[in-house]
Design a protein around this nucleic acid. Structure first.
Length: 268
DNA sequence: CGGGGCTCCTGTGCGC
DNA sequence: TGCGCACAGGAGCCCC
């Protein structure tokens, strides 16, 4: 599941490899991945455009072209891999240096768009703050929580609340903060909020450092797995002993999503 | 506004 | 052993 750390890793890899290259051509194997504009306009719109800059907002990767922006959302199983042409590629971009940018996606839930202004996309417009940017302060987080009656774990995953956190990192953040995933957001005490806030930054920063988690199909732009898996405390560890207390990790369903936590450590 | 459930999709893993 | 079904989940959508 590519979340903020995985998309950030891809972004950094691509910054080292494709900035300044031109997109010579594109091969659309699965048309439904291109959400807008029409395939014809899409092809015409990107041909011979230079890749100027790479941006990330939440889990969304944005390539700034000489005109327009190319938007990628990997959803569950999307991959962006630079190098040789991959036969499994659903959408494949040929670059001016003869190499390829492959968009792979086993479950075909990912999306690609070509737009004039990425900031005007509704999904981007309604997004919450970037958790690793200065705009995301403790005071702001406190204020945001006050207005929400929802359980904290599904709330952390809402892109309109905070950008970039998904199921895996929400679980890891709450374990680090020793907060129960079902705790109502507006009931959190200040000391509890003061545990969650730095846990968000720490977990995401550490995951970027380890180049993401490959619990599912995630690969970085070089096609390699992330190494944060070895650091995972609770996600996917149902019935296994907690690394801190030795108690067994539980799995419950919150908001229809598998939620892992240690009942002994996460009583807050 | 909140919460639940369905949808998209396909590989995996479980039960019978 | 093999088949078939439930499950995995990011985000949009509908409904109550």
């Amino acid at each position: 599941m590519p979340e903020l750390p995985e998309v950030e890793t891809i972004k950094r890899d691509l910054e080292d490899t494709i900035i300044g290259k031109k997109i010579a051509d594109v091969e659309i194997g699965v048309a439904k991945i291109i959400k807008e504009p029409s395939p014809q306009e899409f092809i015409e719109g990107i041909q011979n455009k230079e890749i100027k800059k790479i941006l990330r907002r939440g889990k969304v990767l944005i390539l700034k072209l000489s005109a327009q922006y190319l938007i990628f959302h990997l959803r569950m199983t999307g991959q962006i891999i630079y190098g040789n042409k991959d036969e499994k590629s659903k959408v494949c971009f040929l670059l001016s240096n003869g190499r390829y940018l492959n968009f792979l996606d086993q479950r075909v839930l990912g999306e690609i768009k070509l737009v004039n202004d990425w900031q005007e996309l509704p999904f981007i417009k309604q997004m919450g703050p970037e958790p690793l940017e200065e705009e995301f302060t403790l005071e702001r987080f406190q204020q945001m929580l006050k207005e929400k009656k929802t359980k904290i774990k599904p709330l952390l995953m809402e892109q309109g609340f905070i950008a970039g956190i998904g199921n895996l990192y929400a679980a890891e953040i709450l374990f680090k903060a020793k907060i129960n995933p079902s705790h109502p957001a507006n009931n959190l005490t200040l000391p509890e909020i003061k545990r969650i806030y730095p846990a968000i930054k720490k977990v995401l920063r550490q995951a970027i450092k380890y180049r993401g988690s490959s619990v599912d199909t995630y690969r970085d732009a070089r096609g390699e797995k992330g190494k944060f898996e070895q650091k995972i405390q609770v996600y996917g560890r149902k019935g296994k002993p907690c690394f801190e207390c030795g108690g067994l990790i539980e799995r419950i369903s919150l908001g229809g999503r598998g939620t892992y936590f240690c009942p002994q450590c996460q009583k807050g």
